[in-house]
């Protein structure tokens, strides 16, 4: 017995460990009622000062989690509302375009602008309609406000539009009020001008400038724009007429491709294929 106590004394730490194992196993074997009773007693005495604190803490933690969840929902809802607003705006715009489409006397195709600029033509527009929908080179393109340009290249599912403000674009035009003819093109500064207008012509600011139909490429009467600045040179035969384009060239989202006759085919129009 004495030697056993000596061993315990000599290896006290190990003895405590051995004791803890035995005590642990014994505790784990006690009835659940006993353990629940002990635990209840401890909660009602030792833990009592912390009960209120713990309850408040857990309440706050739950609120925080709920708050985060609500914030997340709010963000998702905001995004959804913005998407719906955009869809509504698009819907309104398309309704307006459909209404406009019905008013156009030529067969037309509504197409979406899917890109701007190609490596060879930085100012051009790329539109999501190609030969699969009957588009061919040379067809005029308008928006709901006026002339946009013409088709200059066609792929299977897209085509390239040369816009009115491209330096190589030219169209025969007429002043709607005075019936003075001229050539509308774009100068090196990107301004749209009407050339070949005699210096004594009756051109006034605000006059509508329409396509004259000469040349056969563009039908007669498409609104190109309105006369902006008019400058008459002191010497020379022609005046300089700046045109403010009617089409919103820098904000185009959809355009109409007109299926009208190419040079020599008249205004009766080229019917688009049934596929469209």
């Amino acid at each position: 017995m004495a030697s056993f106590l000596d061993i315990i004394k000599r290896h006290l730490a190990l003895s405590i460990w051995a004791f803890s194992i035995i005590a642990g196993i014994l505790l784990s074997q006690t009835s659940i009622d006993f353990r629940a009773g002990v635990s209840r007693l401890a909660m009602n005495s030792l833990y009592l000062p912390f009960t209120s604190f713990s309850r408040t803490y857990h309440l706050l933690r739950d609120r925080r989690v709920e708050n985060l969840r609500l914030k997340e929902e709010l963000t998702t809802s905001k995004l959804r509302v913005e998407a719906l607003k955009e869809a509504q705006r698009e819907n309104e715009r398309l309704r307006r375009l459909i209404g406009f489409s019905e008013k156009i006397e030529y067969s037309n195709l509504l197409a979406e602008v899917i890109g701007r600029g190609t490596p060879r033509m930085p100012g051009s527009l790329v539109v999501g309609a190609g030969s699969d929908r009957g588009v061919i080179v040379g067809l005029p393109v308008i928006d709901e406000n006026g002339l946009v340009g013409k088709v200059i290249a066609v792929n299977d599912r897209s085509c390239v539009i040369q816009p009115l403000n491209d330096p190589n674009f030219k169209i025969s035009a007429i002043d709607a009020r005075s019936r003075i003819n001229g050539i509308v093109s774009s100068n090196s500064r990107g301004k749209i001008i009407m050339e070949n207008v005699p210096a004594d012509a009756d051109i006034r600011r605000g006059d509508a400038v329409l396509s004259s139909g000469l040349g056969g490429l563009f039908p007669e009467g498409l609104l190109i724009g309105r006369v902006g600045r008019v400058s008459v040179p002191q010497s020379g035969l022609f005046m300089t007429v700046e045109i403010d384009p009617a089409a919103l060239l820098d904000r185009l989202e959809e355009v109409f491709i007109l299926f009208v006759g190419i040079a020599g085919e008249g205004e009766s129009g080229v019917e688009p294929p049934e596929a469209q």
Partner: peptide, 20 residues
């Protein structure tokens, strides 16, 4: 352990072993 009736004895053995 007194606050954990389901696993009573577990903390006792675990803590003494860890400290040993």
């Amino acid at each position: 352990d007194v606050f954990d009736p389901a696993s009573m004895g577990g903390h006792l053995v675990a803590k003494t072993t860890a400290i040993l």
